[in-house]
Design a protein around this nucleic acid. Structure first.
Length: 589
RNA sequence: GCGCCGUUGGUCCAGUGGUAGGACAUUAGCUUCCCAAGCUAAUAGCCCGGGUUCAAUUCCCGGACGGCGCACCA
C-alpha cells in the first residue's frame, strides 16, 4: 500500500534496512538490516522454520557459502550461469551472444560452446546486432558469470564460488543425509542461508540484490510410491494462474482449492500442490496480502528442461508482480548430476516387498586370450562384452560374438568369454529419488510483508502511519510507557519491562516525549501492543487504610484500532503472550 | 552494461561562484498528560576524485550511489 519511496524512507528511518557501506559511497545490491529489520527477518525465518521444517518433520542443515568449483560444474552453474555478452560497436547495446547464434543458425545450445568458437561463428555467419543491424564480427565476447569467484587457500589453483543458491549444499551431502534419514523415503532437508549472485544491475531496493537469504526445502521422494497427505491443505484456497490462462487471450487468475487444482490436473504434481497450500498459509501469516498474491505456473518456454512442473509464488508490489518463491518438481536431475560427477552414489536402496529371482547373463572374459589378441584395447573389449551380455544375451548364441570398441569391430570366440546365465536373487534396487523443491526468498517476503502492511489513516484528525504486521512477526511485540516519568510511574514501568522480557516477550521501553508521540513511534515499526502505566495503576496499588488493594491494572492499546483496555498487571505476561501467539484476540480481553 | 534524471543534517526539501536555510525527527530544560500540542536551547549536512577559478556545494569532466527505461534475471 506504500508507493515504494515512502516505504524505503520509513525502512531507513526506522531501522528496517539500509544500503550497506554508505560511509564509503555505498555499494550496489547490498543491504544491512537494521534493528527492526533484523528482528523482523529473524521472526519470519522462525515461522518458516516452524512450518517447513519442524511441523513437517524435515531436517535442517547449515552448509558453507563457499563451495569448490567441481560442485558447480556438476550443478551446471558454471556453464549455465555464464552469460556471453557481445556489445554492438555502433549502438552499444549488449546482447547475449549465444542467443544471437541460436536465433540465426541451426545451432542449438550455443550456451555450451566455448567463447572463442562463438566469436568465430558470429564472423562466419556474418551475424548482426539485433537492434541496429550492424555487423558483430570481430567484437569481443565478454564472458560474464553471475557467480562471485574466490580462491580457496593461497594461489589460484583451487577456485571456489559463493553459492548462487543454497540448494547445492543439500544435494552434495545427500549420501550422508540419506543415512541420517535411515535411507527411508520420503525425507526432506531444509536450509536457510545466504546466497550470492553478481547481478549486472541490482534494482528496486531489497527486491534485486547481490546477497540475499533463501529458505529452501529439498524433499526427496520415491517417484513411484510416495504421495503427499493432502488432508491438511485440501481446503486451502489461493489464486492460481496456470500457463493455459496466461496464454489465453482473456485468461485470468482464479481462486481454487488445493483439492480442485489437484483433481482437475492444473497442478500436475500433488507434492507441488501440497507445498503451494503450505506456502499460501505461511505467506498469509507473515503479512502478505492475499488480494495481491497468486501462484503462477511457468510457461513451457521458461521452465528448466528437467522441471516437470514449476510454479512461482508472486506478489504485487508497487504495481509489479514479483517472484517470491519457486516450487519446482526437479525429478532426479540434481542427484543424477552429482552421482555422475562425484565419487559417491546419490541413490537409496529400495527393498522389494518380496525378493525377486532373475536370470542374469554374465561374462568372465579370458584375459589371457584377450590381452595378446587385442593389446591395449583388451580392457575395453572386456567391458563391451559385459555390457553386451546385459543388453543382448542372445548375441552369445553363436560361436563368435562381435563388439565395437572405438568404432572398430572385434570378434571374440564365445568360448573365451565364459558366457553364462545364472539365477540371481535381488532383494531391491538402487533408485534415484526425485526432488520437490519449494525455494523462497526471505528478503522479498520481508519487503512484501512491509509493503502490504503499510497503512496511513487518521486518528483524531492527525495523520498516522503504521505497519499492520502480524503480531507473530512484528519486530517488537510490546511497547511499555509510563504516562510520565514521575511519581513512581517510570520505576513501575521499568520493572514491568523486566518482567515481560523474562516472560519471553520482545519489549521496548519509552518515556520520551508525550504519550501520543510514543504510540506513533511504535506504530511505525509495527509494534502490535502498547502498555501504559498511569496514575490509576499506582492509585490502585497504593490503596491503603485497611481497604483491600485492588489489583494493579495498566492500559493495553491495540495498534490497528488504537483501542485501549485495562488489564490486571498480574495477568499481563500471559495475556500478551497469548495475544502474540494468536491464542486470544484483543476483542476477547 | 547503455540512455535519461538525480545526490544538500537522521529523514524530506530549499538555495548559492565567496562553504548554507527550513520542516520533521533526535537530545536537554520548562510545561502538558492516553494518541505526532507549546516554549527555549542543543546536536547535525553540500557523495567522491580531477579540472576551470583568487575562490567550487554551485560550472565542466570522470567515478560511486539511487530512480526510471533498455538489456539481463540459470
Amino acid at each position: 500500500m506504500s508507493d515504494g519511496g515512502d516505504l524505503v524512507e520509513l525502512a531507513k528511518r526506522r531501522g528496517f534496512f539500509l544500503q550497506s557501506a554508505g560511509a564509503y559511497g555505498g555499494v550496489s545490491g547490498f543491504y544491512t538490516f537494521g534493528p527492526s529489520g533484523a528482528a523482523l527477518k529473524q521472526n519470519i525465518e522462525d515461522t518458516w522454520r516452524d512450518r517447513f521444517a519442524i511441523q513437517e518433520g524435515n531436517m535442517e542443515v547449515d552448509a558453507p557459502t563457499v563451495m569448490p568449483e567441481p560442485v558447480f560444474e556438476a550443478s551446471g552453474h558454471l556453464d549455465g550461469f555464464d552469460d556471453m555478452l557481445v556489445e554492438c560497436p555502433e549502438c552499444a547495446e549488449s546482447h547475449r551472444a549465444d542467443h544471437i547464434v541460436e536465433d540465426n543458425t541451426d545451432i542449438e545450445e550455443a550456451e555450451s560452446i566455448p567463447v572463442a568458437e562463438v566469436e568465430e561463428l558470429i564472423a562466419e555467419y556474418e551475424l548482426v546486432c539485433p537492434t541496429c543491424g550492424t555487423g558483430l564480427a570481430g567484437q569481443a565476447i565478454e564472458d560474464f558469470n553471475l557467480m562471485f569467484e574466490t580462491n580457496i587457500g593461497p594461489g589460484s589453483a583451487d577456485p571456489g564460488y559463493l553459492r548462487p543458491e543454497t540448494a547445492q549444499g543439500i544435494f552434495i551431502e545427500f549420501p550422508q543425509l540419506a543415512e541420517y534419514a535411515r535411507n527411508q523415503l520420503p525425507f526432506g532437508v531444509t536450509q536457510i542461508g545466504r546466497a550470492y549472485r553478481n547481478e549486472i544491475s541490482p534494482r528496486k531496493s531489497l527486491l534485486r540484490v547481490r546477497e540475499f537469504t533463501q529458505a529452501e526445502l529439498e524433499l526427496f521422494v520415491d517417484p513411484e510410491e510416495d504421495e503427499p497427505d493432502l488432508a491438511a491443505v485440501t481446503d486451502v484456497t489461493a489464486p492460481f494462474y496456470p500457463a493455459r490462462e496466461q496464454e489465453a487471450a482473456d485468461g485470468q487468475p482464479y481462486e481454487a482449492t488445493i483439492r480442485e487444482v489437484v483433481d482437475d490436473g492444473v497442478v500436475g504434481k500433488p507434492w507441488i500442490a501440497y507445498y503451494l497450500g503450505v506456502a499460501k498459509q505461511w505467506y498469509e501469516s507473515i503479512g502478505v496480502d492475499m488480494d495481491r498474491f497468486r501462484f503462477r505456473q511457468h510457461l513451457s518456454g521458461e521452465r528448466a528442461h528437467y522441471a516437470a512442473d514449476c510454479w512461482d509464488a508472486e506478489a504485487e508490489v508497487d504495481g509489479d508482480w514479483i517472484e517470491l518463491g519457486g516450487f519446482a518438481y526437479r525429478s532426479d536431475y540434481d542427484l543424477s548430476k552429482h552421482d555422475s560427477y562425484s565419487d559417491e552414489e546419490f541413490t537409496v536402496f529400495k527393498q522389494y516387498d518380496e525378493p525377486v529371482t532373475v536370470e542374469r547373463a554374465t561374462v568372465d572374459p579370458d584375459m589371457s586370450y584377450l590381452g595378446p589378441e587385442f593389446g591395449g584395447s583388451a580392457g575395453a573389449v572386456a567391458d563391451a562384452l559385459e555390457a553386451l551380455a546385459e543388453r543382448d544375451p542372445d548375441a552369445f548364441d553363436g560361436s563368435e560374438v562381435v563388439v565395437e570398441v572405438d568404432g572398430e569391430s572385434h570378434a571374440v570366440p564365445v568360448e573365451k568369454t565364459d558366457f553364462g546365465v545364472e539365477e540371481v536373487t535381488e532383494s531391491g534396487e538402487h533408485i534415484t529419488p526425485h526432488v520437490v523443491e519449494p525455494s523462497l526468498g526471505i528478503d522479498r517476503a520481508l519487503y512484501t510483508a512491509l509493503d502490504h502492511s503499510y497503512r496511513e489513516d487518521e486518528v483524531d484528525g492527525e495523520e498516522r502511519t503504521y505497519l499492520a504486521l502480524p503480531q507473530e512477526v512484528a519486530p517488537t511485540t510490546v511497547g511499555v510507557f509510563p504516562l510520565m516519568d514521575r511519581d513512581g510511574m517510570g520505576e513501575y514501568a521499568r520493572d514491568l519491562v523486566e518482567e515481560l522480557r523474562a516472560a519471553g516477550l520482545a519489549v521496548t521501553y519509552d518515556d520520551s516525549g508525550a504519550i501520543g508521540r510514543r504510540y506513533r513511534r511504535q506504530d511505525e515499526v509495527g509494534t502490535p501492543f502498547c502498555v501504559t502505566v498511569d496514575y490509576a495503576t499506582l492509585g490502585e496499588a497504593r490503596d491503603d487504610e485497611g481497604e483491600p488493594a485492588a489489583p494493579d491494572t495498566v492500559t493495553v492499546r491495540e495498534r490497528d484500532t488504537t483501542a485501549q483496555k485495562r488489564v490486571p498487571v498480574a495477568d499481563l505476561p500471559e495475556t500478551l503472550r497469548a495475544l502474540r501467539d494468536g491464542e486470544r484476540t484483543f476483542d476477547d480481553l
